[in-house]
Computed example of a mutant assay.
Amino acid sequence: MQRDRVIAYASRQLKPSEKNYPAHDIEMTTVVFALKLWRHYLYGTHCVICTDHKSLQYIFSQKEMNMLDRLKITQLKALHDEHLKSELMVKRRVELMNDSRGLKTYRERVWVPLLGGLWDLILNEAHKSRLSVHPGSTKMYHDLKVLYWWPTMKADIAQYVEKSTSETASLTKLAQLYLNEIVSRHGIPLSIVSDRDSRFVSSFWNSLQENLEYGGSWDYHLPLIEFAYNNSYYSSIDMLSYEILYGKKCRTPSCWLEAGEKQFAGPEIVQQTAEKVAIAREKLKAARDRQKMYADLHR
């Protein structure tokens, strides 16, 4: 509109894929279509977009948007003059094309702006997903460059993989230390309290579970062998080694004690331990006597 008068109209039919869009996505596609059609009037200027669809009033502040909408909105923001320099797109802007989805592409690859944190989202999915299995920087770059592009893509991927590998190695070392010093002596904990954030604790749990899976060199798993030895039943003492110390079997992934299990504290646990030690001594003495009897029969 100009001076409160309509000066141009535009319309087109929905594409087959667009017919499946939710109502607000169809309205958003309409806005993108209009901006693309009349972009030569809008470059270098500020404009006001008016729409009668209420949900689009909050399009820039929605907490949850699909990837297609996020890319469209972020690309529109990043092409403003104040962002072009930081996006390294001052000269390359004229090389951007529009694909059938309304996305800006560079040589048939979707342009991903620095603005909006979409780089991290894509790199995390490509590197940490269960279907990607932590690829190296070269493989990851060749996988992503088929679909996406940004000016410093190759260097950013190499830096991301190097940082992620360092963090993973540090976490793996910490999990192995925890397994060697804590799990081998006291079993698997019900919970872990840490002064780090919840993401660290979640990643630590995953790393600990991976360390509990047997594989590789046998000497790497000696702490688990020690734990299994002490957490097994012995007929000579008619109980587990850990049962003498704790009064119960230590937790394992296959033997998880029920919630609300009895807790001992103070003098009670001392008494229980003393009783268990006395029983173990009696059982060991009975086992020695039985073995001596068998040996005497063959003399």
Rank of each mutant, 00 (worst) to 15 (best):
W149F: 10
W149T: 02
P151C: 09
T152R: 10
K154P: 00
D156F: 05
D156I: 02
A158E: 13
A158G: 05
Y160H: 06
Y160K: 00
V161Y: 01
E162S: 12
E167H: 10
A169C: 12
S170Q: 13
K173P: 04
K173S: 14
K173I: 14
K173T: 15
L174Y: 08
L179G: 02
N180K: 09
N180W: 11
I182D: 01
V183G: 00
S184E: 04
S184P: 02
H186N: 11
I188G: 02
P189A: 02
S191G: 10
I192S: 08
I192W: 04
S194F: 04
D197Y: 09
F200R: 00
V201H: 02
W205M: 04
S207L: 03
L208R: 01
N211E: 15
N211M: 06
N211W: 05
L212V: 04
Y214K: 13
Y214R: 13
G216N: 04
S217T: 08
D219F: 03
D219N: 13
D219I: 04
Y220C: 06
H221M: 06
H221L: 12
H221Q: 09
L222P: 00
P223E: 05
L224C: 05
L224A: 04
F227V: 02
S232I: 04
S232N: 11
S232P: 04
S232W: 06
Y233D: 05
D238S: 11
D238M: 06
L240M: 08
S241G: 10
Y242Q: 11
Y242T: 13
E243R: 01
E243K: 02
G247W: 02
K248S: 11
K248D: 03
C250M: 10
R251A: 05
R251G: 01
T252W: 01
T252F: 02
S254A: 12
W256N: 13
W256Q: 14
E258H: 09
G260S: 08
E261K: 09
E261D: 09
K262G: 07
F264C: 06
G266R: 07
G266L: 07
P267H: 13
V270T: 15
T273Y: 05
T273I: 06
T273Q: 13
E275Y: 07
K276H: 10
A278C: 08
A278W: 09
I279N: 11
A280T: 04
R281E: 14
E282Q: 15
E282T: 15
L284E: 01
A286Y: 08
D289N: 13
D289I: 11
R290Y: 11
K292E: 12
M293L: 12
M293I: 07
A295M: 10
